[in-house]
Amino acid sequence: MPTFEKMINKNDLVTYCLRIADTSLILGQRLGEWCGHGPILEEDIALTNISLDCIGQARGFYTYAAALEGTGKTEDDLAYLRDEREFQNLLIAEQPNGDFGQTIMRQFLVSAFQYYFFEELKNSKDKTIAALAEKSQKEVSYHLRHSSAWVIRLGDGTDESKKRMEKAIDELWMYTGDMFDMDETDATLIKESIAVDTKKIKQLWENKIREVFAEASLTVPENIFMMSGSREGKHTENLGFILAEMQSLHRAHPGAEW
Protein backbone atom coordinates (compact mmCIF):
# COMPACT_ATOMS: atom_id res chain seq x y z
CA MET A 1 0.00 0.00 0.00
CA PRO A 2 1.42 3.39 -0.87
CA THR A 3 1.66 5.81 1.99
CA PHE A 4 -0.54 8.90 1.99
CA GLU A 5 2.44 11.10 1.23
CA LYS A 6 3.37 9.00 -1.76
CA MET A 7 -0.20 9.19 -3.04
CA ILE A 8 0.02 12.98 -3.05
CA ASN A 9 3.30 12.76 -4.87
CA LYS A 10 1.76 10.50 -7.43
CA ASN A 11 -1.03 12.97 -8.21
CA ASP A 12 1.51 15.76 -8.43
CA LEU A 13 3.64 13.65 -10.68
CA VAL A 14 0.72 12.95 -13.00
CA THR A 15 -0.13 16.64 -13.13
CA TYR A 16 3.49 17.51 -13.81
CA CYS A 17 3.71 15.06 -16.72
CA LEU A 18 0.40 16.23 -18.14
CA ARG A 19 1.60 19.83 -18.18
CA ILE A 20 4.69 18.94 -20.16
CA ALA A 21 2.74 16.69 -22.51
CA ASP A 22 -0.01 19.27 -23.03
CA THR A 23 2.49 21.96 -24.00
CA SER A 24 4.19 19.69 -26.52
CA LEU A 25 0.90 18.46 -27.95
CA ILE A 26 -0.65 21.90 -28.39
CA LEU A 27 2.53 23.32 -29.90
CA GLY A 28 2.78 20.31 -32.23
CA GLN A 29 -0.86 20.77 -33.19
CA ARG A 30 -0.26 24.43 -34.05
CA LEU A 31 2.83 23.58 -36.11
CA GLY A 32 0.89 20.88 -37.93
CA GLU A 33 -1.42 23.59 -39.27
CA TRP A 34 1.51 24.81 -41.39
CA CYS A 35 1.65 21.64 -43.47
CA GLY A 36 1.63 22.56 -47.16
CA HIS A 37 1.67 26.31 -46.52
CA GLY A 38 5.31 27.11 -45.66
CA PRO A 39 7.20 29.95 -47.36
CA ILE A 40 9.64 27.49 -48.90
CA LEU A 41 9.52 23.73 -49.18
CA GLU A 42 12.46 23.24 -46.82
CA GLU A 43 10.60 25.13 -44.09
CA ASP A 44 7.41 23.22 -44.70
CA ILE A 45 9.38 20.09 -43.97
CA ALA A 46 11.18 21.64 -40.98
CA LEU A 47 7.96 22.79 -39.32
CA THR A 48 6.26 19.40 -39.71
CA ASN A 49 9.46 17.80 -38.45
CA ILE A 50 9.35 19.91 -35.28
CA SER A 51 5.63 19.17 -34.97
CA LEU A 52 6.40 15.46 -35.15
CA ASP A 53 9.01 15.78 -32.38
CA CYS A 54 6.45 17.62 -30.24
CA ILE A 55 3.83 14.92 -30.73
CA GLY A 56 6.45 12.32 -29.80
CA GLN A 57 7.30 14.17 -26.61
CA ALA A 58 3.62 14.47 -25.71
CA ARG A 59 3.12 10.74 -26.26
CA GLY A 60 6.01 9.88 -23.96
CA PHE A 61 4.78 12.03 -21.08
CA TYR A 62 1.10 11.05 -21.54
CA THR A 63 1.97 7.38 -21.55
CA TYR A 64 3.89 7.80 -18.32
CA ALA A 65 1.08 9.85 -16.76
CA ALA A 66 -1.43 7.15 -17.73
CA ALA A 67 0.77 4.44 -16.22
CA LEU A 68 1.15 6.42 -13.00
CA GLU A 69 -2.62 6.92 -12.77
CA GLY A 70 -2.99 3.20 -13.14
CA THR A 71 -6.65 3.29 -14.13
CA GLY A 72 -6.17 1.81 -17.58
CA LYS A 73 -6.24 5.10 -19.46
CA THR A 74 -4.21 5.52 -22.64
CA GLU A 75 -2.27 8.41 -24.13
CA ASP A 76 -5.29 9.05 -26.35
CA ASP A 77 -7.71 9.25 -23.42
CA LEU A 78 -5.52 11.97 -21.98
CA ALA A 79 -5.13 13.86 -25.25
CA TYR A 80 -8.63 13.50 -26.64
CA LEU A 81 -11.01 13.22 -23.71
CA ARG A 82 -9.98 16.07 -21.45
CA ASP A 83 -11.60 19.49 -21.69
CA GLU A 84 -10.23 22.97 -21.99
CA ARG A 85 -10.00 23.61 -18.24
CA GLU A 86 -8.23 20.30 -17.69
CA PHE A 87 -5.43 21.13 -20.14
CA GLN A 88 -2.46 22.81 -18.51
CA ASN A 89 -0.26 23.62 -21.48
CA LEU A 90 1.75 26.83 -21.41
CA LEU A 91 -0.31 29.71 -22.75
CA ILE A 92 2.29 30.60 -25.35
CA ALA A 93 1.92 27.19 -27.04
CA GLU A 94 -1.71 27.83 -27.95
CA GLN A 95 -1.15 31.27 -29.50
CA PRO A 96 -2.07 31.46 -33.19
CA ASN A 97 0.53 30.78 -35.87
CA GLY A 98 0.16 34.25 -37.35
CA ASP A 99 2.67 34.73 -40.17
CA PHE A 100 5.84 32.66 -40.49
CA GLY A 101 7.66 35.24 -38.33
CA GLN A 102 5.23 34.86 -35.47
CA THR A 103 5.42 31.07 -35.63
CA ILE A 104 9.21 31.26 -35.58
CA MET A 105 9.20 33.73 -32.68
CA ARG A 106 6.84 31.54 -30.67
CA GLN A 107 9.04 28.54 -31.42
CA PHE A 108 12.17 30.37 -30.40
CA LEU A 109 10.75 31.62 -27.10
CA VAL A 110 9.40 28.15 -26.23
CA SER A 111 12.39 26.17 -27.49
CA ALA A 112 14.80 28.33 -25.50
CA PHE A 113 12.68 27.64 -22.42
CA GLN A 114 12.40 23.91 -23.13
CA TYR A 115 16.11 23.66 -23.82
CA TYR A 116 17.08 24.72 -20.28
CA PHE A 117 14.02 23.07 -18.77
CA PHE A 118 14.77 19.62 -20.18
CA GLU A 119 18.48 20.09 -19.50
CA GLU A 120 17.59 20.41 -15.78
CA LEU A 121 14.90 17.75 -15.91
CA LYS A 122 17.49 15.24 -17.14
CA ASN A 123 18.66 15.19 -13.52
CA SER A 124 15.23 14.31 -12.16
CA LYS A 125 15.24 11.62 -9.50
CA ASP A 126 12.36 10.02 -11.37
CA LYS A 127 14.18 7.84 -13.88
CA THR A 128 11.38 7.77 -16.46
CA ILE A 129 11.05 11.54 -16.43
CA ALA A 130 14.81 11.89 -16.69
CA ALA A 131 14.92 9.58 -19.71
CA LEU A 132 12.03 11.38 -21.42
CA ALA A 133 13.72 14.70 -20.73
CA GLU A 134 16.97 13.51 -22.23
CA LYS A 135 15.31 12.44 -25.45
CA SER A 136 13.28 15.65 -25.63
CA GLN A 137 16.30 17.83 -24.96
CA LYS A 138 18.13 16.43 -27.97
CA GLU A 139 15.20 17.31 -30.20
CA VAL A 140 14.74 20.74 -28.66
CA SER A 141 18.43 21.60 -29.24
CA TYR A 142 17.68 21.32 -32.94
CA HIS A 143 14.45 23.34 -32.62
CA LEU A 144 16.36 26.06 -30.81
CA ARG A 145 19.14 26.15 -33.38
CA HIS A 146 16.63 26.28 -36.21
CA SER A 147 14.42 28.97 -34.71
CA SER A 148 17.38 31.11 -33.50
CA ALA A 149 18.83 31.15 -37.01
CA TRP A 150 15.48 32.27 -38.40
CA VAL A 151 14.95 34.97 -35.75
CA ILE A 152 18.36 36.37 -36.73
CA ARG A 153 17.69 36.13 -40.47
CA LEU A 154 14.29 37.78 -40.22
CA GLY A 155 15.21 40.37 -37.58
CA ASP A 156 18.29 41.35 -39.55
CA GLY A 157 16.72 40.94 -43.01
CA THR A 158 14.60 43.66 -44.62
CA ASP A 159 12.68 46.53 -43.01
CA GLU A 160 9.51 44.57 -43.50
CA SER A 161 10.81 41.39 -41.92
CA LYS A 162 12.14 43.37 -38.95
CA LYS A 163 8.74 45.02 -38.45
CA ARG A 164 7.03 41.67 -38.57
CA MET A 165 9.39 40.22 -35.97
CA GLU A 166 8.84 43.23 -33.71
CA LYS A 167 5.11 42.69 -34.04
CA ALA A 168 5.58 39.00 -33.18
CA ILE A 169 7.46 39.93 -30.01
CA ASP A 170 4.69 42.36 -29.18
CA GLU A 171 2.07 39.63 -29.63
CA LEU A 172 3.88 36.95 -27.67
CA TRP A 173 6.00 38.49 -24.95
CA MET A 174 3.15 38.72 -22.42
CA TYR A 175 2.89 34.92 -22.42
CA THR A 176 6.53 34.28 -21.53
CA GLY A 177 6.08 34.89 -17.79
CA ASP A 178 3.67 31.95 -17.59
CA MET A 179 6.49 29.59 -18.56
CA PHE A 180 8.28 30.29 -15.29
CA ASP A 181 5.29 30.33 -12.92
CA MET A 182 5.26 27.61 -10.28
CA ASP A 183 2.62 26.30 -7.90
CA GLU A 184 2.26 23.77 -5.05
CA THR A 185 2.78 20.84 -7.42
CA ASP A 186 6.12 22.24 -8.54
CA ALA A 187 7.13 23.03 -4.97
CA THR A 188 6.33 19.52 -3.75
CA LEU A 189 8.21 17.84 -6.59
CA ILE A 190 11.18 20.22 -6.41
CA LYS A 191 11.60 19.15 -2.78
CA GLU A 192 11.77 15.56 -3.98
CA SER A 193 14.34 16.52 -6.69
CA ILE A 194 11.91 15.42 -9.35
CA ALA A 195 10.86 18.73 -10.93
CA VAL A 196 12.66 21.78 -12.30
CA ASP A 197 12.90 24.95 -10.26
CA THR A 198 12.20 27.42 -13.05
CA LYS A 199 13.78 30.23 -11.03
CA LYS A 200 17.08 28.52 -11.80
CA ILE A 201 16.63 28.60 -15.55
CA LYS A 202 15.02 32.00 -15.96
CA GLN A 203 18.32 33.87 -16.20
CA LEU A 204 19.73 31.36 -18.69
CA TRP A 205 16.64 31.81 -20.83
CA GLU A 206 16.88 35.59 -20.68
CA ASN A 207 20.56 35.50 -21.62
CA LYS A 208 19.78 33.34 -24.63
CA ILE A 209 16.98 35.66 -25.74
CA ARG A 210 19.25 38.71 -25.35
CA GLU A 211 22.08 37.06 -27.27
CA VAL A 212 19.89 36.11 -30.23
CA PHE A 213 17.88 39.33 -30.24
CA ALA A 214 21.12 41.33 -30.23
CA GLU A 215 22.33 39.52 -33.32
CA ALA A 216 18.90 39.99 -34.91
CA SER A 217 18.85 43.72 -34.04
CA LEU A 218 15.67 43.17 -32.02
CA THR A 219 14.89 44.75 -28.66
CA VAL A 220 13.97 42.78 -25.55
CA PRO A 221 10.79 44.36 -24.14
CA GLU A 222 10.81 45.72 -20.60
CA ASN A 223 8.01 46.03 -18.05
CA ILE A 224 5.36 44.20 -20.02
CA PHE A 225 2.17 42.94 -18.38
CA MET A 226 2.42 39.15 -18.04
CA MET A 227 -0.48 36.76 -18.43
CA SER A 228 -0.51 33.67 -16.27
CA GLY A 229 -2.91 30.83 -15.69
CA SER A 230 -1.71 27.67 -17.46
CA ARG A 231 -1.20 25.84 -14.16
CA GLU A 232 -4.84 26.41 -13.23
CA GLY A 233 -6.09 25.51 -16.70
CA LYS A 234 -7.03 29.13 -17.35
CA HIS A 235 -6.36 29.63 -21.01
CA THR A 236 -6.71 32.19 -23.73
CA GLU A 237 -9.76 31.71 -25.96
CA ASN A 238 -7.58 29.93 -28.53
CA LEU A 239 -7.40 26.58 -26.78
CA GLY A 240 -11.09 25.76 -27.04
CA PHE A 241 -10.94 25.90 -30.81
CA ILE A 242 -7.73 23.90 -31.00
CA LEU A 243 -9.32 21.13 -28.92
CA ALA A 244 -12.61 21.31 -30.82
CA GLU A 245 -10.75 20.56 -34.04
CA MET A 246 -8.28 18.09 -32.61
CA GLN A 247 -10.78 16.02 -30.61
CA SER A 248 -13.81 16.12 -32.93
CA LEU A 249 -13.31 12.85 -34.80
CA HIS A 250 -12.10 10.90 -31.79
CA ARG A 251 -15.06 12.05 -29.68
CA ALA A 252 -17.60 11.41 -32.43
CA HIS A 253 -16.84 7.68 -32.21
CA PRO A 254 -16.50 6.77 -28.54
CA GLY A 255 -14.45 3.67 -27.94
CA ALA A 256 -13.54 3.15 -31.62
CA GLU A 257 -10.09 1.81 -32.48
CA TRP A 258 -8.15 3.68 -35.14
Binding site: L25, Q29, G32, E33, C35, G36, I45, T48, N49, S51, L52, I55, G56, A58, R59, Y62, E75, D76, A79, Y80, E245, M246, S248, L249, H250, H253, A256, W258
Partner: peptide, 19 residues
Protein backbone atom coordinates in the same frame (compact mmCIF):
# COMPACT_ATOMS: atom_id res chain seq x y z
CA UNK B 1 -6.34 15.78 -41.64
CA UNK B 2 -3.22 16.23 -39.50
CA UNK B 3 -4.99 18.41 -36.95
CA UNK B 4 -7.93 15.98 -36.73
CA UNK B 5 -6.16 12.60 -36.76
CA UNK B 6 -8.13 10.35 -34.39
CA UNK B 7 -5.18 9.12 -32.31
CA UNK B 8 -1.74 10.43 -31.45
CA UNK B 9 -0.09 7.49 -33.18
CA UNK B 10 -2.00 8.21 -36.40
CA UNK B 11 -1.18 11.88 -36.10
CA UNK B 12 2.53 11.11 -35.80
CA UNK B 13 2.50 8.65 -38.70
CA UNK B 14 0.62 11.09 -40.92
CA UNK B 15 3.01 13.91 -40.07
CA UNK B 16 5.96 11.70 -40.91
CA UNK B 17 4.33 10.65 -44.15
CA UNK B 18 3.54 14.17 -45.32
CA UNK B 19 7.07 15.18 -44.42
Amino acid sequence: WITRAPSLRRKAVLLAKVQ
